[in-house]
Nucleic acid binder design. Structure first.
Lengths: 108, 108
DNA sequence: TAATTATTTCGATACTCGTTGAAATATGGA
DNA sequence: TCCATATTTCAACGAGTATCGAAATAATTA
């Protein structure tokens, strides 16, 4: 991942509502969630949400596909991991950065 | 780490010059670097740099101490790792998030 | 004390951001 | 076709951001 992409991804996540949206999508799994359900869950206006989706999408953090009248948004895990990779790559270059990254999940 | 802190840290890193500053400090090691040297290395005006230091510092990502006339800034690795922890914690909750986090560094 | 060096503070400016309300577009059903 | 549902587009607004130049502050040296 390039520095430009990292800045874009960081900026996309650096906002309350967007971080909520992304976390919700991450928990929703690969299937994703329709925009309306996200709006209702988080109590956000649909047009506001569109604005945030655009940010997340152009940062490559979420994908969108149409299903009937709904548009389903889903987290792009690879991108998230690329960001983490970039950050750790530039963090722990032979230094005592004490990773201590706890892994509670089930790696694929 | 709280969500508020995560947003603050992400916002602090989500800017070209600040990301440069932080990466430089991370590579400089625990000893840190004087503000002037950072300014020269990155080609930034000292007052602009002060602005960015403030952001990084109030996000808890760097520390500052005085040494003579210079002020030495240093990366706070724990904070960086807390952020990574927060992101992975909220990322891989039993999902196929394919971590693939390569570890090139030397963990403490 | 006066001059020098290192960094910060202040005021101003152009720009971007997040939100809102109203209107537009797309899809599916009667 | 007409209507309802789902989402996006558009224009506008207040608030915050990144940068600059000039002046102020802190620490060292002559």
């Amino acid at each position: 991942m390039e520095k430009t992409d990292a800045v874009a991804a960081l900026a996309a996540l650096a906002q309350d509502n967007r971080l909520d949206v992304f976390r919700l999508l991450v928990r929703a799994g690969p299937t994703g969630m329709p925009a309306g359900a996200i709006a209702e869950t988080l109590g956000l206006a649909p047009n506001t949400l569109t604005f945030h989706f655009d940010r997340l999408r152009s940062a490559g953090l979420v994908s969108a596909r149409r299903d009937g009248r709904s548009i389903i948004y889903a987290a792009r895990y690879e991108r998230m991991n690329a960001l983490l990779g970039f950050l750790t790559e530039n963090c722990c270059e032979g230094l005592s950065c004490t990773p201590a990254r706890k892994r509670t999940g089930v790696p694929a």
